[in-house]
Structure formats: C-alpha cells, structure tokens
Design a protein around this nucleic acid. Sequence first.
DNA 1: CCAAAAAGCTAATCGCTTTAGCTTCGAACG
DNA 2: CGTTCGAAGCTAAAGCGATTAGCTTTTTGG
Lengths: 185, 185
Amino acid sequence: MPRAGLSTTAVVDAALAVVDEQGLEALTLTAVAARTGVAVPSLYKHVGGLGELRVRVGVRVFEETAERMAAVAIGRSRDDAVAALMHAYRGYVLDHPARYAAMVADPLHDPAYAAAGTKLLEVFFAVLGHYGLDGADAVHAVRRLRAVVHGFASIEAAGGFGLAEDTDVTYGQLIDMYLASLPRS
Amino acid sequence: MPRAGLSTTAVVDAALAVVDEQGLEALTLTAVAARTGVAVPSLYKHVGGLGELRVRVGVRVFEETAERMAAVAIGRSRDDAVAALMHAYRGYVLDHPARYAAMVADPLHDPAYAAAGTKLLEVFFAVLGHYGLDGADAVHAVRRLRAVVHGFASIEAAGGFGLAEDTDVTYGQLIDMYLASLPRS
DNA sequence: CCAAAAAGCTAATCGCTTTAGCTTCGAACG
DNA sequence: CGTTCGAAGCTAAAGCGATTAGCTTTTTGG
C-alpha cells in the first residue's frame, strides 16, 4: 500500500477545495481527511490543527488575491491601474465566493496574516503612488479603497444584494466614486 | 427552588452578552447556559438550537442598528441626514465591536433576516429619498452606501486598520466621498 | 384543589478535535 | 543488499459541544 504522499501544501489545497465546494462552515478536519484519503489524526503530521489550517487557508487566499492584483496593475497607471486592481479584487471573489469568508472571518491578529496582508497593502500603495499622495494621505486613500472593495465584495459573496439590478453597474459606480476621491492630475 | 424564568428574549440577551465579552467564537450553548444558570438542554425550550440562536442574535443586531439610524436621521435631510446615518452605523460597531461579526457572519439567506434587513434598507432608502433618485439609481446608491459603511465597519471591528493614522479622519473622507457620488442639488 | 402545559433536569448519543503511542514505509548509508 | 531510522500513517481513547429522549416539577387556569 503506497503512502498518500501528503504535505502541508496538499492539505491546504484540499481545504480550499472543501471550502469551494461546501462552504467555510464545512471546513473540518474530517472533511479534509476524507478528501485526501487519510485518517483524521494523520493530518496533524502536516498542520498543527484545525486552527492553524484555517489560518493557512486565509493566508493563501490573501496571497492569491495580492498576486492577481499585482499582475493586473503592471503596465497601467493612475485611474487605469486602480480600476484594473478593483476589478481584479472583485474577480477573485466572483471566482471563489466561498473562499472570501475565509479571508475575513479569521484571526487578523494572527502573525501569519501580517506578511500576507503586508503584501496586499504594498500593491495598494504602489498603485496609489502615482497620485503623489504624502504619507498620511496615502494611508487614508488605501483605507478608503480597502473599505470599498472589501465592503462590496463581502456583501456580494454572501449574496447580500437581493434586488435584481445589475451588480456590475453598482461596482462601476463604486469605482468612479473612489477615483473621484483621488487627487485629479 | 424557583425557576430561572427564562424566555427566548432572555436567552438572546445572554447570548449577546457572551458575544460582547468573549467574542463571536465563544457563542456556545454551554456558555449561554452557564450565564443564565440553567442546564444546556433547558435552552432548547426557548430556542431551536445553536443555529437558530445565531440567527436571532444577528437579527437583533440588525434591528438595533436600524433603530439607531432611524432615530438619528429624523429631522435632518440630504447630506446632513446621510452623514448622521453613516456616523450612527459606525457608532454601533464602535460600541459593540464583537457583535458586528455576528451581523455579517450568518446566513443572510435565512428568511428571518429578511424582515430585519428590509427594515434597515428602508431607512437607507428613506434618507436617500430626498435626492430624487429614480428606482434603479436609488438601488445602486443604497448599495454603494452599504458597501462603504459595511466595508469600513467590518475592517475596523476586526482590528484591520493597523497603522497609526486616525480612523476618524478616514471615515470622514469616506463620508465625503460617498456624498460626492450623490446628485448635487 | 386539580390537571395539564411549560420549564427544567439527567442520561445518553453523536460528530469533531486532539493526544498518545504503535507500525510501517522508504530512503540513505554502510 | 541489508540495516536502520525518521517520517507518515494508523488505531485507540479522551474530551467537548450539540442534540434528543424522556422524566420531574413548577405554575397556572379553571
């Protein structure tokens, strides 16, 4: 009987798959073990426990989001770059709605998040760099941006926009609204 | 031995107290039972189970928020009313940071939320009524508002704004940004 | 006073996490 | 080749929380 050949990465992969398919509440060691074809306690050889697994999942989502946004911002500047970044952020959520809850729900206080969160912030700051904002103004501009994209994305991911109107339109207006709050050339 | 004299309301009250004091993750039937001085299964006489209790907690938070906002909007109009409402929303979160997670985290899909959510939406629509927005535009304006206030509040409640800059300033800018997106008289 | 419903309790089950300790695969090394 | 030893896995068992069943007791309305 060959071994399962698991690894921390493989376990996190399986966890993400569980979340995608059954939602965040379904992220349980039992579910991950079943998916990886291993007994539950075996998972402890790769992750410290359910808590740590949750953190790793959250970090992974953070990283993937940051990656996407960084990729899309290359070769663009100012409003063009900001709009692209906002679309990329929302795009990740549309692709993996269930994951979004994981990104939020968990211990932002955990140190492991710090690194991933910083990476995400750096992308934001880089894109806003073209507007010549000084230190504090840049911080506030980044916060406004986070509030807007996170607010919209989390409501949309949770199915919170019940009415029939097109959410693409709403998001477009949100982008315009945010851009208007940045210093005009 | 007199009875505990519990009621559904009292159980929800205790649940809110647990959330306030120990966070949303600590909301457990065991914790609520301990606080109300009753055995765990006795709680089932008043609430259907943990799931239902969570929903009731979320609904309560919704209602209280809507109430506060409605109260503060009275006697104001347009920008004045919108700003007051935004401050009231954030104020609730500042007063009960831990509760905010409950408002979000839970089944928006649950029908019980519908009524409470509708009440909240009505306040938003009422305040935006002064701007003469037609149907679809009003919907988008309400969504923008929700995205902004919810985004900021949830990040702040989770301790997501790590840097030293004053969050009051950020929120002020967010209010201005949103107001600028509404039709000028 | 009495009956019945409501409120509470104890006992028991179930699912999930976690710990302990054993077994076995497989790779590196003689 | 054969050995050994660490990593990866497993089984067993404990513990905690939710939930269900079924009994007891208080309250309350007639």
